[in-house]
């Protein structure tokens, strides 16, 4: 049982969102837009994939014609035809 699982268990026990106790990125998806909050930085940016750091792991936003619409320290907005999100 790792640290990540412990935090997840604690959040579940206290009925809190997991991202409030960890450094994991919170991603809100709509059909053509993904808003990532509390991201740990941009690792890669291409037309078909935007890769972010999330806590100790990585998150990939996959799709077509992806555009980095806005980005600052906390929030990142990606628009385009989003097909999925991968955690690694």
């Amino acid at each position: 049982m790792g640290m990540r699982d412990t935090v997840a268990d604690l959040a579940a026990a206290w009925e809190l969102p997991e991202e409030t106790l960890s450094r994991e990125a919170s991603i809100r998806l709509t059909r053509h837009q993904a808003v990532a909050e509390q991201h740990g930085g941009l690792l890669g940016y291409e037309d078909e994939c935007v890769e972010l750091r999330s806590g100790r792991g990585r998150v990939r936003i996959l799709g077509r014609e992806l555009v980095l619409r806005a980005m600052d320290r906390d929030t990142l907005i990606v628009t385009g035809h989003i097909s999925g999100v991968e955690y690694a």
């Binding site: 890669g44 555009v67 980095l68 806005a70 980005m71 320290r73």
Partner: peptide, 26 residues
């Protein structure tokens, strides 16, 4: 370029409309 974008975000700079024009140019 991703490194530059990351550094900008870390410094609190607001980046908008980052669009690829060519493989190494945006």
């Amino acid at each position: 370029t991703a490194r530059f974008l990351r550094r900008c975000a870390e410094e609190g700079l607001l980046l908008e409309n980052v669009i690829w024009e060519e493989p190494f140019t945006c």
